[in-house]
């Protein structure tokens, strides 16, 4: 398929691309699953929110910021005991998903929170005036109204995860970034490095275009 690579390298490349997909997809799915409730909680407990509570909002915000400000490579190593607890091992693609998901959850939670904050307060007030409960406001107003912003946040997170996943090689996570380092850099094979970079660029481009297209579709109405 790629004449400048040996068949063995081609196989490695396909394998690595799949590993990247699994890591990015898995971590993103977990991040959305935990990040959205977290963001809703942050949004609701903020001053002027649906259920303002500084006692909940401050510590929650602190934890999210702490995770976000820890460099990923350090976070990955620092939470090895936790990773072992969750994944049973601290080595491999599956294990790499744990730190990736953790970092992405904190990341996406803030992005989601921003998207929720963009929802016009007047619309929320109108829903209250119509007798909507807080749960109804969250499910029928906040989330649907913020949907374009939420989708944009998912796109940004996916793109960031592609970058983070390159570091997963440090814990034997594999993936395209790992392949690039081991073959392209350490074995002096610039053609492997170039291919890896090219695939990553296509990957990110594809994600971004898909995300943008979805957001545009939603915003148009």
């Amino acid at each position: 398929m790629l004449p400048w690579l040996t068949p063995m390298l081609e196989d490695l490349l396909v394998e690595a691309a799949l590993e990247t997909l699994v890591m990015v997809g898995g971590a993103a799915a977990i991040a959305v699953l935990f990040g959205l409730p977290l963001a809703l909680l942050l949004h609701a407990t903020a001053p002027g929110g649906l259920a303002p509570s500084a006692a909940l909002n401050r510590p929650l915000g602190l934890v999210v910021n702490a995770v976000r400000s820890t460099p990923f490579i350090i976070l990955m190593v620092a939470i090895v005991p936790f990773t072992r607890l969750v994944a049973g091992t601290s080595i491999g693609t599956g294990a790499a998903i744990v730190p990736l998901a953790l970092a992405a959850t904190a990341f996406i939670a803030r992005l989601f929170e921003n998207a929720l904050r963009e929802v016009d307060r007047g619309v929320v007030e109108a829903a209250r005036a119509m007798g909507a409960s807080r749960l109804q406001i969250v499910l029928k107003v906040l989330v649907p109204e913020a949907l374009p912003g939420l989708l944009a946040a998912i796109t940004v997170t996916l793109v960031s995860l592609v970058g983070y996943s390159a570091m997963a090689g440090a814990v034997g996570g594999g993936g395209l970034g790992d392949l690039g380092i081991r073959f392209g850099y350490q074995r002096f094979m610039p053609e492997v490095m170039a291919t890896v970079v090219l695939i990553l660029i296509l990957f990110v481009q594809g994600l971004q275009s898909l995300g943008d297209w979805l957001v545009r579709r939603l915003r148009r109405r």
Binding site: D120, G122, V123, E125, A126, A129, M130, V141, P144, E145, L147, L218, R221
Partner: peptide
């Protein structure tokens, strides 16, 4: 209740 800025749901 009717509002100055309509407050319709865009979605």
């Amino acid at each position: 209740m009717v509002f100055q800025h309509f407050n319709l749901l865009a979605s």
